[in-house]
Design a protein around this nucleic acid. Structure first.
Length: 434
RNA sequence: GGGGAGGUACCCAAGUGGUCAAAGGGGGCAGACUGUAAAUCUGCUGGCAUCGCCUUCGGGGGUUCAAAUCCCUCUCUCCCCA
């Protein structure tokens, strides 16, 4: 007797609000339910904040339900005002199109889009050719402006201003749901908590135009213990695209979480049993972070990359549980053994940003300051100078104190120059003849 | 359309003729402590550099020995009225 996936989601902290909880739970405990989540093509990559709905979709798909992912090719042109204090800049059509393509491939990493699997649709297909007057007469008449004005997303913007364009977003998303309900048998829409208003509108519309009962579910906005939006710090978002956030950095992001966030994030971002997520945190918080980081990296970048990142991290910082004492269903302990046996747990260059220098570059005897800047460890010469003055600059693991230090061929070790800023930021230059 | 208030560094925000590269806070970076965590403490936080120099206070123009500060103009944002 397997657990109802509804309970799984609840237990793992995915549920924020649902409509008609009792019925929805019953449906999800039974035969296949077709459900959908919409994604806006606003960036070239999704970040960890976008991952929550995807993880939920995977849980549901594993439980035998049928996911539909909607790429907002049409709605993206309007821009969802939900949860935003001001209008975001509109992307042009080319950019949107590109982003849609990126979204598709990224979703494919998590969901199974095989024959009987998940479906991927673009709402441009049914919204793109809508006739304005027809739309107003068929769909617009079901909406009450009075009601729309009470939506949180609208109220928020009544203060600062809301364009008519954005005001219409809600109608389009509601229309999506109605279309999916009618043509694809979709009865559940899920989304972030700021989507509640849009989802409820869709449920109403589906009932009015096709007399169908549908359901809605929202996920909490994931925040860290400091109350900040998760995965999108000032320093930059944590992207799932390796080009933008390398697997090593991705791993490090999880490894460096605040203690208080680990259990919560493990439930959301791994598939380990919820009870285990609590247990490992209880047993050894640092091991729990390693397991979380490994599992999360595995899900996004695949097992080989996760192993590499883990190996590099252990080599750099040591292991939190060298003897594998902590019980876990993760295959990290076996990976541990394998790495140990093959002697791979030594200083590794994997994942460390590397760029190249030529011998003629070195003949000009560049200053340390210049190399630090070139390595992106400092944004300007002044910053590099500061770094050195404050004792945060390392050349070949040796702390540098002279801001005027010049780099020569003697600093090349085994064809490389190793730079470090602070404890964690590394860069390697490989030196080649030209 | 009329009236009012504003636009200062990554963000918030002081500053209303020289002492302003511009207070304070947040954020960020580095150091100490530590567990690659948190909290705390310290330093730094426009650029180039040997005193020093150069570019910044929405854009442009002007007054002045001297402007973030005064005048003109353009522009953007917010508020109130119609």
């Amino acid at each position: 007797m397997s657990t109802n996936v509804f309970d799984t989601l609840q237990e793992r902290g995915f549920l924020y609000q649902t409509t008609d909880e009792e019925n929805l739970r019953k449906l999800l405990g039974g035969g296949p339910v077709t459900f959908y989540v919409g994604f806006d093509p606003t960036a070239t990559s999704m970040h960890v904040g976008n991952l929550v709905p995807i993880m939920a979709m995977v849980h549901l798909q594993r439980a035998g339900h049928r996911p539909i992912a909607i790429v907002g090719g049409a709605t993206g042109m309007v821009g969802d005002p939900s949860g935003k204090t001001e209008a975001r800049t509109l992307l042009d059509k080319d950019a949107l199109h590109k982003n849609c393509e990126y979204l598709k491939t990224q979703l494919g990493r998590y969901l199974d889009f095989g024959e009987e699997g998940a479906k991927l649709l673009n709402n441009l297909d049914w919204i793109g050719d809508l006739n304005y007057i027809d739309f107003l007469r068929e769909i617009g008449r079901h909406f009450s402006v009075n009601r729309m004005l009470t939506a949180e997303s609208v109220k928020l913007r009544l203060e600062t201003g809301l364009s008519f364009l954005e005001f219409n977003y809600m109608l389009l998303q509601a229309y999506d749901f109605a279309v999916l309900a009618k043509d694809h048998g979709c009865i559940l829409q899920m989304g972030g908590q700021d989507q509640w208003g849009n989802i409820v509108m869709g449920i109403d519309l589906a009932r009015r135009v096709s007399k169908k009962s549908t359901y809605g579910m929202t996920f909490p906005l994931v925040t860290n213990s400091a109350g900040e939006k998760f995965g999108k710090s000032v320093a930059g978002a944590i992207w799932i695209e390796a080009e933008q956030t390398s697997p090593y950095h991705y791993y490090q992001f999880w490894r460096n979480l605040d203690d208080r966030d680990v259990a919560k994030m493990a439930k959301l971002y791994t598939f380990l049993p919820a009870s285990e997520c609590d247990a490992i945190c209880e047993a050894n918080i640092n091991r729990a972070k390693e397991i979380l980081a490994f599992e999360a990296t595995k899900i996004t970048h695949g097992a080989p990359e996760a192993e590499k990142s883990y190996a590099a991290s252990v080599a750099e910082f040591g292991s939190a549980d060298p003897d594998g004492r902590i019980e876990t269903t993760s295959d990290l302990p076996s990976v541990d053994l394998r790495l140990k046996a093959s002697g791979k747990l030594q200083k590794s260059e994997e994942g460390i940003p590397t760029s190249s220098l030529t011998t003629s570059d070195l003949e000009q005897t560049p200053r340390l300051i210049e190399l630090l800047t070139r390595a992106d460890l400092a944004t300007s010469a002044s910053e590099a100078r500061r770094l050195i003055k404050q004792g945060g600059a390392y050349l070949n693991e040796e702390r540098m104190s002279d801001p005027e230090r010049v780099i020569t061929g003697e600093d090349v070790q085994e064809g490389k120059i190793a730079l470090r800023a602070g404890k964690k930021r590394h860069h390697r230059f490989t030196v080649t003849n030209d």
